[in-house]
Amino acid sequence: MHILHLDSAITADASVSRQLTADIMAKLTAQGTPTVTYRDLNEGVPAIDTTWFQAVRVGTDSPTPEQQDRIATSDALLAEVQAADVIVIGLPVYNFAIPAQLKNWLDQIARAGVTFRYTADGPEGLLTGKRAIIAYTAAGTPMGSDLDYASGYLRHMLGFMGITDVTFVPADGLAFDREAGMARAQAALDQIAA
């Protein structure tokens, strides 16, 4: 088994999502020694731009050094996802949505013809057979509420690329009742099979 472990919180050691992804990883690795790739998205994932679009989406026979850099970055992020059987994602909710660095990661890997394609029957995800486990944390945004623009979006994007086996470990409402929020997360974590 190959696990891709992604963190995106900006709060360093105070991060609940980082704590939960570590707990998820401990559970997944307790019964064996899988290959693990770790990436801290907070260390920087470039936003896509016109240079990225021209290099990656349009393609060119003789890319400039700047375009080659964009291609290499996107290809490296994509290769990590393609190699993974399980993807563990830390999803702290900021301003009711996913962190910018997690959005940048999704933009880098959502590549037509590689992770999805359009068919006569509609879009088809190409990253099938993978499992995602998401540590959802929020101070005041209940998961699944009308205020939650994060969990549904992330589930949709993963599904659009073919990852439909998605499990959430939610620790929400932490600003109001941290103990109850952490208890909800622990209950979800207890249900995860290694």
Rank of each mutant, 00 (worst) to 15 (best):
R70C: 12
R70P: 03
I71G: 02
A72M: 00
A72H: 00
T73P: 00
S74N: 06
A76N: 06
A76V: 00
L77H: 11
L77A: 01
L77C: 00
L77F: 15
L77E: 02
L77V: 01
L78N: 08
L78C: 07
A79K: 13
E80I: 07
E80S: 12
E80Q: 15
E80Y: 06
E80F: 06
E80T: 06
E80D: 15
E80K: 03
E80R: 02
V81C: 04
V81N: 00
V81T: 13
Q82S: 05
Q82M: 13
A83N: 10
A84T: 12
D85C: 04
D85G: 11
D85L: 05
I87L: 07
V88T: 09
V88K: 05
I89L: 10
I89G: 03
I89E: 03
I89A: 03
G90P: 07
G90R: 09
L91T: 14
L91K: 13
P92M: 09
P92Q: 09
P92R: 11
P92G: 14
V93W: 14
V93M: 11
Y94V: 09
Y94R: 09
Y94P: 05
Y94K: 02
Y94H: 12
A97D: 11
I98M: 14
I98D: 00
P99A: 04
P99C: 02
A100Q: 01
A100I: 08
Q101E: 10
Q101N: 15
L102I: 12
L102A: 04
L102F: 12
K103Y: 00
K103T: 00
K103S: 04
K103N: 05
N104Q: 05
W105D: 02
L106D: 01
Q108T: 10
A110W: 01
A110Y: 01
R111K: 03
R111H: 01
R111M: 05
R111P: 00
R111T: 11
R111I: 15
A112C: 07
A112T: 09
V114I: 15
V114F: 08
T115I: 11
T115W: 13
T115P: 05
F116P: 03
F116A: 02
F116C: 02
R117G: 07
R117M: 13
R117C: 08
Y118H: 13
Y118M: 07
Y118K: 01
T119K: 05
A120I: 02
A120M: 06
A120T: 09
A120W: 01
G122P: 05
P123H: 13
E124Q: 15
E124T: 10
E124H: 07
G125I: 06
G125K: 06
L126Y: 15
L127M: 15
T128R: 12
T128D: 04
G129E: 11
G129D: 08
K130A: 06
K130H: 11
R131Y: 07
R131Q: 11
R131S: 02
A132Y: 12
I133R: 04
I134N: 03
A135T: 10
A135P: 08
Y136H: 07
Y136L: 04
T137C: 08
A138I: 03
A139Y: 07
A139C: 03
A139N: 14
G140T: 07
G140Y: 06
T141H: 05
